[in-house]
């Protein structure tokens, strides 16, 4: 193995709760180790150089969606980003735009997602008559189940929201995450909502007709969800209501 590189991290630092603190970029150096991810690097920086450094990780396996940040201009999950992906060894880290900043690289995506969920009623609205858990479940076509799961893989990381210029310009826009979830429930045969019901929620400027098809969502989604296709589907569906 060749000599280990020295990585240069340029990290956005700002504590909004600290009076007088101003946003700034701070540079740190770290010796790269084989297989190093941004998760490992940030923890090393916190443990050895600056214990006040704020960032969020939970599963550190690309599953929970906690750690999205902007890495060299591209919003993605930090836990599964290898430092080896950056040949010049310069890594610039910024918090996801479009969310409340807690501090440094930590943003409040949880609050955003919960509010979105309440605003758009993002849960299954089943037929309440059909709820005997002791009896055999209602059958569902295997293809439908597969399709539902494909749309359900969203991890609410917030990358699509941060990558969407429409969302950045208009705060009330629901973004790709909201529309992907609507599309998921719209597809679900167990959901009793009609196209009209969905139109009430997203058939407006803050919903599917506010989307300007900039496709930041499609190009950055860490789970490769078919945002472009699903938003187009919803647009056609809603336009025909």
């Amino acid at each position: 193995m060749s000599q280990a590189r020295t990585l240069t991290f340029s990290i956005f630092r700002y504590d909004p709760q600290e009076s007088g603190d101003k946003p700034k970029m701070v540079t740190y150096s770290l010796t790269e180790a084989p297989g190093m991810t941004v998760f490992i690097a940030l923890n090393q920086l916190r443990e050895t150089q600056d214990p006040s450094l704020q960032f969020d990780f939970v599963c550190r396996a690309g599953i929970c969606g906690s750690c999205a940040m902007v890495i060299n201009g591209f919003p993605t999950l930090a836990c599964r980003t290898l430092t080896a992906n950056y040949p010049d060894g310069h890594i610039k880290l910024m918090p996801l735009p479009g969310f409340d900043l807690i501090g440094d690289l930590s943003v409040n995506t949880g609050k955003f997602m919960r509010e979105l969920s309440e605003r758009l009623s993002l849960w299954l609205h089943p037929n309440s008559a059909d709820n005997d858990i002791h009896r055999i479940e209602a059958p569902m076509s295997p293809e439908e189940a597969t399709k539902l799961y494909e749309l359900e893989r969203c991890v609410e990381c917030g990358v699509c929201v941060s990558a969407c210029a429409t969302k950045q310009m208009r705060d009330t826009f629901v973004g790709a995450v909201g529309m992907m979830k609507i599309a998921r429930f719209e597809l679900d045969s167990r959901d009793t909502r009609t196209a009209d019901d969905f139109y009430h929620v997203i058939g407006n400027q803050d919903g599917v007709f506010g989307c300007m098809t900039l496709l930041g969502c499609q190009d950055t989604c860490p789970k490769d969800l078919p945002h472009m296709q699903q938003i187009a589907y919803l647009r056609r569906k809603m336009a025909s209501v």
Binding site: G73, P97, A163, A165, Q168, T213, L214, G216
Partner: peptide, 22 residues
């Protein structure tokens, strides 16, 4: 504010389709 948000977005998260739209 919207204009500024757009310019910031393009500066910090360069993205082709956004640039095209701009």
């Amino acid at each position: 504010g919207q204009w500024r948000a757009l310019r910031n977005q393009m500066r910090f998260l360069p993205h082709e389709d956004t640039k095209i739209w701009f």
